[in-house]
Design a protein around this nucleic acid. Sequence first.
DNA 1: CAGAGTTTTGCAGGCGCATGCAATATGACG
DNA 2: CGTCATATTGCATGCGCCTGCAAAACTCTG
Lengths: 342, 342
Amino acid sequence: MSEHGATRATTAQDVADLAGVSISAVSRAFTPGASVSKQTRSRVMEAAEKLGYTPNLVARSLATQRSGIVGLVMGDIRNPYYPEVIDALSRRLASSGFRTMLTTVWGDVTVDDVGPSLVQSKVDGVIIASIAEADRLGDTLFKAGAAVVLFNRSTLASESLSSVRCENVEGGRSVANFLLDRGLTRLAYIAGVEHIYTTQEREAGFVGRITERGHQLHARETGDYTYQGGFDAAQRLASLDVPPDSVFCANDITAIGAIDGFRALGLRVPDDISVVGFDDIELASWPPYRLTTVRQDKTALIENTVGMLVQQIRSGERTRQIKLVPVAIVERNSVVSNRVAG
Amino acid sequence: MSEHGATRATTAQDVADLAGVSISAVSRAFTPGASVSKQTRSRVMEAAEKLGYTPNLVARSLATQRSGIVGLVMGDIRNPYYPEVIDALSRRLASSGFRTMLTTVWGDVTVDDVGPSLVQSKVDGVIIASIAEADRLGDTLFKAGAAVVLFNRSTLASESLSSVRCENVEGGRSVANFLLDRGLTRLAYIAGVEHIYTTQEREAGFVGRITERGHQLHARETGDYTYQGGFDAAQRLASLDVPPDSVFCANDITAIGAIDGFRALGLRVPDDISVVGFDDIELASWPPYRLTTVRQDKTALIENTVGMLVQQIRSGERTRQIKLVPVAIVERNSVVSNRVAG
DNA sequence: CAGAGTTTTGCAGGCGCATGCAATATGACG
DNA sequence: CGTCATATTGCATGCGCCTGCAAAACTCTG
C-alpha cells in the first residue's frame, strides 16, 4: 500500500506546500462542487501534476463516511449468463463513480462469511444476484446501513429489500401459450435449483397458464441450472413411457444441456421434441442449438439495478422499490413450427 | 456507509467503555498476535458481541497502510475461460484474507482509466489477466508500490513484473507433434487477438515445431479469441483452393466457433478436418464438440498466482518471479485417429 | 470611497483504528 | 519480602483527508 522503497507517497500537504495554499484548498480542488476559485484550483492541479499526487481514497472514505464501493455478490458464475452481468454491472457502476468488490458465494463460502466482510468493508451498497440466502444476507447488510438491491431475485421473504428482476411469471405464461399454440400437448418443465425464486416463478407462470387453458403439466424434472443437470433431466424425460413433446427449461444452459441430452438418445430437436429456454445467452444463438428462448433485457435490468442502487446511496433513502422488466420470446429453431396445421 | 437512520455504528470506543478497558485493548484484541491478556481479550470480545461491533476496515487500512484489497483486472470476460478464473481467484484471495476489487478493461474503458483508480484505492496488490496493455498498467501499479502478478501473460515488455502462465510454447509444439503424428500434413493456425502474447507464443511453438519436422504452416487466419471469430476464420479456411486438413486454434472458444463454422459448410469434424483448441474449458467436453485441446492446469495457475502475490505483499519484496505451469493435451474426438495407418 | 453582500480561504477538529513508548501489573527467584 | 525480567496496559500521536465556522478577500452599489 505504501510506496515501494523509501519514497513516501505524496500527500495533500506536499501539494499544498508546493502550490502555496492550505491543505483545505487542495482537498477542495479535488472535490467537485467545492468552493475554490479557478486560480487556486489550477495552481493546485499544476502542483499535483508535478508531484504525481492523487487523493488517497481510503482516507477520503474515512473522512466522508462513504467508501464509494459497491459489493457484488454472485452465486456460481460459471453459468454463462453471469459473466455478461458482472461485466456490465461493474462497468456501469464505474461510470457512476463506484468501484466493485466481488464475492462469489457457493460451496464452502456461505452468506455468513460474506455478510460481516461486506459490513466491515463499509460498502455503500450491495447488489445480490443468484444466491440461495439472498434475503438473509440482504437484511443483514440493510440493517448495517448499506443500500441493497437484489438482482433478478424476488424478495418475498424480506419486507424491506428492493429488487430488479424480469417478468418471470409472464415469461412462463408466454411459453405455455407459445407451445400450446403450436399444437404441442405434452409439456414438461425442467426446473432450476429448487429453492430459488426465479425457477419457481417461471414454473408457476408456465403451469398456471397450461392449467388455464385446460391442460396439465405432462412431466417435471430438476435440472439444477446446469448443463449436466439439463442433460440428465432430458434423458430421464425421454425414457418416460409417454415422453413429453416439448420441454420448457428454467434457463438456457439447462435447455442446451437438455438438447444435447435428447440428441444423445437419437432424438431430434425440434422434430421429435421441442425445447425452450430462458435468458437468451450468447450460446443460445449458436448454430448447433438455435434455441428458442425467453429474452431478458439485460441492459434494462442492469440500468435499473444500478440506477436504483445509486439513487438510494446518494439520497440515503431506503424505501423499497421493485422493478419488473418485461420479457419477450425469441423464436429460433428449437420448437416445431406447427404440429396441428402441419 | 453509516448506520441507517440515527443510530451511529458502534466503534472501538463503545466497546472499550462497556468492557472497562482502553481503546488500545480493543484494537489489540482484534489484532492477531498483539499483546493482550486472555482475560482482557475475552472481556473485549464479550462486549463486542453484545454491541455487534466489528472493526472498521477503512479506518484500519488508513492506520496500517494496508488495504487488504487486491485488484483483479480482466479483459473481456465473456470468454468462458475467465469466469472460472475470476471465481477461483477471488475465492483463493478471500481465503488468504484479501478482498477482490474487480475491473474489466475493454471497449471504452482503458488502462489509463483503471491505473489511477487502482492506485487511489491503495490496493495492496494487483492481478492482471488478458488485457492489451498489461505491461504498462503493471508498471504503473508497480511504481506506485503495489505487488503485481500477470496472470497467463508474458512480461517481455517489462523488466520488473512477475508472472504466472502456462507453457504456451510447449503447448503449441505438442499440438504440432500430435497432428503430424497422425499423418496430417496441411496444418493451419487460427490466431487470437494479434498483439496478445499467449496467441503469439502458442503460434511460435506450433509453427516452430512444424518447421523442425520439415513441414510448413499451410494456412493462417485470425479468430479474435471469440466464437464468431473462429466461425468466420473456419469458413475462410474451408474456401481455400487447398483447404487445411487440421486447424490449431488459439483458444477453445475459437476452436468451437471453428467447428461450427466448418459444419455450417457441410464439413465433418474430424473426418474432413481436425480441430484442436487450447484451455480446456467446460464447453470443450460437451457432446456436440468433444474437443481435443491443450489443458491448462487452472488450479496450479491460480495457486501460484495468489501465492506469489500474497508472498510479495507480506514480505514487501518485489523481486521478479516467473512461473510456468505445464500443459497437457486432452484427447477427445475432434482429431482423426490416424490417417496414415488407416 | 464606505458598506453590504458574496466568494474564498485557512484553521481546527474530526473520521476509527494502530502502535511506540512509558507506566503499571505480574511472575520468578533468592 | 525485595528485586528484576516480562507481560499488559493506556496515553498520545499519527494515518490522509473533509468540512463547519469564522476571518479575509473580492465585488458591487449608491
